[in-house]
Amino acid sequence: GTVHVGDKTYHFPTPDAAKKFAQEIAKKLNLQVTVKNGTWQVH
């Protein structure tokens, strides 16, 4: 899975790992999470 946070991109071996990371970052930074075609965006 891929997660975009601002101008950074993180790659994870599984979709679940990407989802978990995106949700944790969003919670920590009080941001929104959207997913499109398996790519997570934190914004």
Score class of each variant (00 low, 15 high):
G1S: 11
G1N: 14
G1L: 11
G1P: 10
T2H: 06
T2V: 12
T2D: 06
T2R: 10
T2A: 08
T2E: 07
T2W: 12
T2Y: 09
V3I: 02
V3W: 00
V3H: 01
V3Y: 00
H4M: 15
H4K: 14
H4Y: 12
H4R: 14
H4N: 09
H4I: 15
H4E: 10
V5M: 08
V5I: 14
V5E: 01
V5D: 02
V5W: 14
V5R: 01
V5G: 01
G6Y: 13
G6P: 01
G6R: 06
G6K: 06
G6I: 08
D7T: 14
D7F: 11
D7Q: 12
D7Y: 12
K8Y: 10
K8V: 08
K8I: 09
K8F: 11
T9S: 08
T9Q: 08
T9F: 13
T9K: 09
Y10I: 05
Y10N: 01
Y10H: 04
Y10C: 10
Y10E: 01
Y10L: 05
H11D: 05
H11F: 13
H11A: 05
H11N: 08
H11T: 09
H11W: 13
H11S: 07
F12S: 00
F12W: 03
F12N: 00
F12K: 01
P13K: 12
P13N: 11
P13M: 09
P13C: 13
P13T: 12
P13D: 14
P13A: 13
T14G: 04
T14I: 03
T14Y: 05
T14W: 04
T14K: 03
P15L: 13
P15H: 13
P15E: 13
P15V: 11
P15G: 10
P15R: 15
D16F: 05
D16N: 10
D16G: 10
D16M: 10
D16E: 14
A17I: 07
A18E: 00
A18D: 00
A18K: 00
A18I: 03
K19H: 10
K19P: 00
K20G: 05
K20D: 09
K20T: 09
F21Q: 01
F21R: 01
F21V: 03
F21H: 01
A22R: 00
A22F: 02
A22I: 04
A22Q: 00
A22K: 00
Q23T: 13
Q23G: 06
Q23M: 14
Q23V: 12
Q23E: 14
Q23D: 10
E24V: 10
E24H: 13
E24P: 00
E24K: 13
I25F: 05
I25G: 00
I25R: 02
A26K: 02
A26N: 02
A26W: 02
A26L: 03
A26Y: 01
A26T: 03
K27A: 12
K27Q: 10
K27C: 13
K27N: 09
K27M: 09
K28D: 06
K28F: 09
K28T: 07
L29W: 15
L29A: 06
L29E: 05
L29P: 03
L29N: 07
L29S: 05
L29F: 15
N30A: 06
N30S: 07
N30F: 05
N30M: 06
N30W: 04
L31Y: 07
L31T: 07
L31A: 15
Q32K: 12
Q32F: 09
Q32C: 12
Q32V: 15
V33P: 04
V33H: 02
V33K: 01
V33S: 03
V33R: 00
V33F: 08
V33N: 01
V33C: 09
T34G: 05
T34K: 05
T34F: 07
T34L: 06
V35H: 14
V35M: 14
V35R: 08
V35G: 15
K36M: 12
K36T: 12
K36G: 06
K36C: 14
K36Y: 08
K36R: 11
N37F: 04
N37K: 05
N37S: 04
N37Q: 05
N37R: 03
N37T: 03
G38F: 07
G38L: 04
T39N: 14
T39E: 15
T39M: 14
T39H: 15
Q41Y: 15
Q41C: 15
Q41P: 03
Q41W: 15
V42Q: 02
V42C: 02
V42E: 03
H43P: 04
H43W: 09
H43Q: 12
H43M: 13
H43G: 15
H43L: 12
H43I: 14
